[in-house]
Design a protein around this nucleic acid. Structure first.
Ligand code: MN
Ligand code: MN
Ligand code: ZN
Ligand code: ZN
Lengths: 151, 151
DNA sequence: CCTATACTTGTAATGGTTCTAAGTTAGAAA
DNA sequence: TTTCTAACTTAGAACCATTACAAGTATAGG
């Protein structure tokens, strides 16, 4: 697995793309930057709007194509919204999501907190599920559903 | 919270519907029965096909309407497929799902196993997430992603 | 029974996503 | 640097799951 870019300079992202066998284009750079600097998990259209505002000169089809390429190459993940449209996440590491029942929005749980929870799952029970069901668990995806206290 | 019907007789389901303030109709009974007796988590169209085969005399619009009514009243839940169409689940109790990476299919983890895992989550970390983020956790939704050993 | 209200249904509309086919470009090779 | 080709971009059409609509029908309470 390749390392995640914390820098979003042209050079850094180009390197990242090369490592993932993706051609580096103006449009892909713009989409990746817009996605990676977002704390929310934007839809394809939200990214398109944002880029159009910035006059990046990109088509909606390319936003979709790029997101598909990023997901396929492991630089992003596609999240089911539960609603109408898909959401995209530039964090591919295991991390938890917080879903606000009121708005439906998805937020990341800070990585350190999330990792502590994932590391403290009852491993014996997971093993038991695996052996009992003949299933090999690859990833445990957790979503904390609730609401912000200030509501 | 009302009790889940383990019997799917007309009388039992009618009682369930009355408790949930839903009118009892031939079509809703058919949809609920078809959903509740499924071990998979069918799409609206899968239910429609199944009912059409059985000459239940029901329209696709009604399948959608009924599923929406069931979800709104708490008798079913809507699951994001990750793919194109939504999946429905007559189990509203907390339970885990197994996602087969190969096929994308969703299966239930047997309730006893799932409950043991949920009961053994590190509660202190959950509390910490709540206080740290000012978020009140209502439900912990877990999906085990992997593949069946026989592949 | 009667009636009000909720439900059903065929069909049209919606909207996110994918497809197509024609131009353009990145990046490798010479 | 020049050339070449596979990969990428794009506008618009197509697709398809879901929702909206409007006209008929059935449920359940009084
Ligand atoms: Mn994120
Ligand atoms: Mn189920
Ligand atoms: Zn995330
Ligand atoms: Zn389930």
């Amino acid at each position: 697995m390749h390392q995640q870019a914390h820098e979003l300079t042209e050079a850094a992202v180009q390197t990242l793309f090369v490592q993932h066998h993706l051609r580096f284009t103006r449009q892909r750079y713009a989409v990746y930057r817009a996605l990676a600097c977002e704390d929310i998990h934007p839809t394809a259209d939200q990214l398109y709007q944002k880029l159009t505002d910035n006059k990046s000169g990109i088509s909606l089809a390319t936003v979709y194509n790029t997101l598909e390429a990023l997901v396929k190459s492991g630089l992003a993940q596609k999240l089911a919204d539960g609603g109408t449209s898909a959401r995209y996440d530039a964090s591919v590491d295991d991390h938890l999501h917080l879903r606000d029942r009121a708005t439906g929005s998805l937020m990341d749980v800070p990585v350190n907190l999330g990792k502590r929870l994932l590391d403290n799952l009852p491993d014996n029970i997971l093993k038991e599920i695996e052996s009992e069901l003949g299933f090999s668990i690859n990833r445990v995806q957790i979503e904390l559903v609730g609401e912000y206290a200030g509501n």
